[in-house]
Nucleic acid binder design. Sequence first.
RNA 1: GGCGCCAUAGCCAAGUGGUAAGGCAAGGGUCUGCAAAACCCUCAUUCCCCGGUUCAAAUCUGGGUGGCGCCUCCA
Length: 466
Amino acid sequence: MKIFNAETREKELFVPIDKNEVRIYACGPTVYNYFHLGNARPFIIFDTLRRYLEFRGYNVKFVQNFTDIDDKMINKANEEGITVAELAKRFIAEYFTDASALGVKAATVHPRATENIDAIIEIIKTLIEKGFAYEASGDVYYRAQKFEGYGRLSHMPIEDLAAGARISVNDIKESPLDFALWKAAKEGEPFWDSPWGKGRPGWHIECSAMANKYLGKTIDIHCGGQDLAFPHHENEIAQSEAANGVKFANYWMHNAYINIDNQKMSKSAGNFFTVRDISKQFDYEVIRFFMLSCHYRSPINFSAEILKQAEAGLARLYNCYNNLKFLSETAEVGFLEGEKEILDTFGEFREKFIDAMDDDLNTADAISVIFDFARELNTVFCAESVHSSDMISEATDMYLELCDVLGIVVKRSEDSLDSEIEELIKQRTQARENKDYATSDMIRDKLKAMNIELLDTPSGVKWIRK
RNA sequence: GGCGCCAUAGCCAAGUGGUAAGGCAAGGGUCUGCAAAACCCUCAUUCCCCGGUUCAAAUCUGGGUGGCGCCUCCA
C-alpha cells in the first residue's frame, strides 16, 4: 500500500516496523461536547484505514486518546457547574454512542490524559534533563528552536515564525515559539502534584507520553486533522524525538477539512453541527458514506443536498444486498454447473478494490468498484436463470466483505415482522389475488407509513424496513 | 507578509503523459395491475483562461483568474 506521507509530501510504499503488526496513533477529541462533523472525518477516515489494514491481514494496534483536561474542559465544567471529571465521563460515553453508530470501532486503547499523568511527568523530566525544557514560575516550557528539524513536518520556516511572532509583555518564555509542557494550577483548577508544583499537563505532551507508553518509541502511522500539523504534531515530534532519541512516526497522515455550504464551520458563523444533530435527519451510515465519497486529503463540502445524494447512493448498495437476500430464500441447494466460474470472475472486483485502497486510501475509487460489483450482481442474479443458495451466499459474502472494509451496508434488516404487520401483508396478497387493487394499494400505503416497504417480485412479496 | 491547497457534466466525484471511472438527478425503454427494485439506452470531442514542452496533456511547465486553508485553541 502507498501512503501520502505529510512529512515528505510524497506517496511512499508503506512498510511497517514489524512485519505483521501496524501501530497507529490518532489524535482524539477533547471531551467537552458532542463531537462535530469536523471531528467525525478523521474518526471515520482512520477507522477505515484500520479496517483496511486488518482486511489485508495486519494486526493493528490503534491508539486514540481522549483529552480530558485543558482550558476548554475547565471552562465547560464551570459553565455546567460540574467537575471536569464528570464532564469527561459524560462526553466520553457520548463519544462512544456516536462513534459506534458511525461504525467507528473502539480503539485498541483509548488512553486519557488524566490517567497518564505519571508518564507525562516522566517525559517532561527527561526533556528538562536533556536541556530541551525549562521551568519558569511553575510552568515548564519546551525550547522549540533547540530541537533540530523543528518545522520539518509542517514545512514551516522557523526563523520567519520566530521573527514574526510577537513577544508579549511579561512573557516568561525564552522564545515565542516555546510551548507549555506543564501549566501551574490557577485558583480553582484541577491539579496534580509534580516536581514543579501543582499543575496540569499541556496539550501537546499528552500525545507524546501516551504514544510512547502504549505503542513504543517509534510508531508506524500518526494520524490527525491537517490543522494539527502545526503546531500540535510538530511539537509531538520535537518532544518525542528529543526525549527518546529515535524517530517518532514513520508516516504522517492528515485529513483535510470539512466545509458547510462552502464555508468553514464555526460556532460564530452559526453553521456548527454536531454529528448528533445531523443524525436526527440522516442515518449515521449516510454520514459515513458521505465522508468516504471523496479522497481524505481533499476538502469536503457538507450540505443537506449532498447528504441526500449520498443517501440515495447508499440505498442502491442496500438494494443490491436485499435483492440477494430475497433470492436466497427460494434458491436451489448445492452449487450448480458454471456457478463457481462466475464466482471466480467476481474476484476482479476485489482486486480493483484493493488497487484503489492501496493508492493512499482512495475510498472514492473503492466505492465506484463496489457500485460496479453491485451492478454485476444485480445483472447476474436478477436474470431468469436459477441459482443455488451456496452461490448466492458466497457472492453475498464477497460483496459484504468489501462493504465491511468501508464500514457500510452494516445496518442489515435481519429483524422479523410482528404479527400485525404479517397479517396486513397476507390481507394485501389476498386482495391482489382477487384483483382488488384498491384495497391492496391502500394496505401497501398503510405499511409504507409504518416504514415497511413492499416489493412485488416474481418470487413473491418482499418487504424492506426503511 | 510567510507556508500550502484547490478549480473535471445540473450536483457529488475518481483519474499525475496515451486519448474523460462511479454515484445522484434528468429523459427514453424492458419488466409490473400500478408501483418499487433491477436491467438497457441517452446525458463533458472535453477537464477555469492564455501560452510552452511532447508524436500525445485534465494530467508536465510558465503566466493569469477565481475559491480556500494554516501561521493563535481548533479535526
